[in-house]
């Protein structure tokens, strides 16, 4: 059993949980993910590692309440335990000699970007963070990220904080200003990651994205998470989750994310119906 040490809401629909998992925290690195099974009848849900504390023996997740699965995880309270947590899965983010890095987090993607930024920052890399939210009420971890960034830029859709617009606007500006960028690492909704790739591609700026494919096993045995990268089929869980953004077939990724949309909605409506009774 995996006991929840702490659990609270960070923003509307966005939840934080810190879980006791000594074996996982010992190995966890930025860029990796967990598979969480809330209770015996739950799905296996992949969630990126938002933080880890080897001394305490804990790992943290930040997730958005979307379907039945994530709502179920959200309904757990501190002191309760998850049925299963597997991890750390996937390959860690590697520092490849960069001097200037731009990390981009969109919405829920701000959470996994944080430990990545911290890792680069600790290694003396100049970190510029660009984080985008829907609006002021949805901000979270901007303070944490600021503490590990040399520069920090916030965008909101409605302009309630920072730049009004998208993370790509700010990125484009940096490129136009000829600011040095050795690599961009972007995590967020697929449409945002695709937009970032489109911005950096003409300039040949190395760009890494972390994909959020549907998964079942998370260990390379089922192939639910397969994606096409550079014309080759890859498993997100084993070969990723980080890939060269310029080679990812985003259209296919988004198509595959919609595979259970109809069923997901039914299950979600039913689940929320139950808990309202």
């Amino acid at each position: 059993m995996y006991k929840i040490i702490e659990k609270y809401s960070l923003a509307p629909q966005i939840e934080f949980a810190r879980i006791k998992a000594p074996m996982i925290s010992k190995k966890a690195e930025p860029g990796q993910f967990l598979i969480v099974v809330a209770c015996e009848k739950s799905e296996r849900i992949p969630l990126t590692i938002a933080d880890f504390d080897r001394e305490e023996g804990s790992v943290s997740i930040v997730f958005q309440k979307m379907g039945k699965g994530t709502h179920k995880i959200a309904d757990f309270k501190a002191g309760e335990s998850f049925h299963a947590v597997l991890g750390p899965q996937g390959n860690p983010t590697e520092i490849e000699g960069e001097k200037n890095i731009v990390v981009i987090g969109g919405g829920i993607g701000v959470a996994p970007v944080y430990p990545i930024a911290r890792k680069f920052h600790e290694n003396g890399v100049h970190v510029t963070s660009i984080i985008g939210y829907r609006g002021k009420d949805f901000l979270f971890w901007d303070d944490k990220l600021a503490a590990v960034s040399n520069e920090m830029k916030i965008t909101t859709n409605d302009g309630s904080v920072g730049h009004k617009g998208f993370v790509t606007d700010v990125l484009q500006q940096m490129i136009d200003n000829k600011e040095p960028i050795d690599r961009v690492i972007a995590i967020g909704p697929p449409i945002m990651m695709k937009a970032v790739a489109d911005v950096t591609r003409p300039h040949g700026i190395a760009t890494t994205v972390s994909l959020n494919s549907l998964m079942v096993c998370g260990m390379g045995m089922c192939g639910a998470c397969r994606v096409t990268v550079g014309g080759e089929v890859k498993f997100t869980c084993m070969d990723g989750p980080e890939f060269d953004a310029h080679k990812v077939d985003f259209a296919e990724l988004m198509q595959r994310l919609g595979m259970y949309k109809d069923l997901e909605k039914d299950a979600h409506d039913e689940y929320k119906g139950d808990s309202n009774e």
Partner: peptide, 23 residues
């Protein structure tokens, strides 16, 4: 893949969806 289809049913009990969450 056969592995995914069978894992969804045998391990995750998708044949008992929505009692079990995996479709």
């Amino acid at each position: 893949s056969a592995n995914e289809f069978l894992t969804r049913v045998n391990l995750m009990k998708a044949h008992r969806y929505p009692e079990y969450d995996t479709p």
